[in-house]
């Protein structure tokens, strides 16, 4: 059983809604990013997603685009994100999922990337522009290294493809609760509930819903239909607002704790 499997089994046993927290790795720079990740863990996130900054984040909204630009300007690369994860692994309780676009991984070489990710203590990998149809080679390398392959599902995903993602994927399924790019919204979209219902009808695999969530009431609402809620852009915005604050870690920890209240 992978660490992610253990986390979701525990959440179900405790009948608790999980919190998956996304941060852009290397934002605002690598040392402060380490502080942020430790704070997210202390704040009680059940899974931490580390976004790998990429020059052309075409599925991301403005908040994560800006974070990506800050991280790249500070010299963050995929190799350094892996080093960062390795340096934190012993102190961070939550499973770590790398959230990346395909090209940095392809450039490193997929087998080499998978090996280095496993050595760094990464638990799962989600590649944003690698749908199941294109993921064969990557998935084989991930499986060989004991990494879970996380697939995305969207309101536009067909039933057949939900089944395929559930069958080929590991850890959990990441449901995109609304059409569009990443970014916080005021409300939970109606499409979140209908997507969750469609996924639940096909598979018992754990489901995390994301895109648009920023408040504890969003997390609670998601808990009615799914195993966990993902909070990304809103958390990245907290990092952006407090990047120059000596108590950056404290601010992040308080925000994550509040999300779980």
């Amino acid at each position: 059983m992978s660490r992610l499997d253990g986390t979701f089994a525990r959440l179900r046993a405790e009948q608790r809604t999980g919190l998956v927290a996304y941060v852009t790795a290397g934002d605002p720079d690598l040392p402060r990013s380490a502080e942020v990740i430790r704070a997210v863990d202390r704040g009680g996130a059940d899974v931490i997603e580390l976004g790998v900054p990429f020059s052309d984040p075409l599925a991301d909204g403005p908040v994560i685009q800006r974070a990506t630009e800050r991280a790249l300007a500070a010299g963050t690369t995929l190799a350094r994100v892996l080093d960062l994860a390795a340096s934190l692994r012993a102190d961070v309780a939550a499973p770590l999922v790398l959230f990346t676009y395909a090209n940095p991984m392809v450039r490193m070489g997929i087998p080499a990337f998978a090996r280095r990710a496993r050595e760094a203590g990464i638990d799962g990998v989600l590649v944003l522009d690698l749908p199941p149809e294109e993921a064969g080679e990557a998935r084989a390398s991930f499986v060989a290294e004991g990494l879970d392959t996380i697939f995305l599902l969207s309101p536009t995903t067909s039933v057949e493809r939900i089944r395929r993602a559930a069958e080929l994927g590991g850890g959990f399924l990441y449901g995109i609760s609304r059409l569009g790019v990443t970014g916080a919204r005021a409300d939970v979209a109606d499409s979140a509930e209908s997507l969750a219902a469609r996924v639940r009808a096909e598979t018992t695999r754990p489901l995390a819903l994301g895109f648009g969530f920023s408040r504890p009431e969003h997390v609670r609402a998601v808990g009615r239909w799914a195993d966990a809620a993902v909070v990304g852009s809103a958390l990245v915005q907290v990092v952006a607002e407090h990047a120059g604050n000596p108590d950056l870690g404290g601010e992040v920890e308080r925000y994550v704790r509040w999300l779980r209240s």
């Binding site: 749908p131 149809e133 969207s154 536009t156 995109i176």
Partner: peptide, 20 residues
């Protein structure tokens, strides 16, 4: 059928666009 010319091509898109 997957849109490949030899080793090149394919469909590397975010999930929301696959059905489109």
């Amino acid at each position: 059928a997957r849109g490949y010319f030899g080793a090149f091509g394919g469909r590397f898109v975010p999930e929301t666009l696959v059905s489109a």
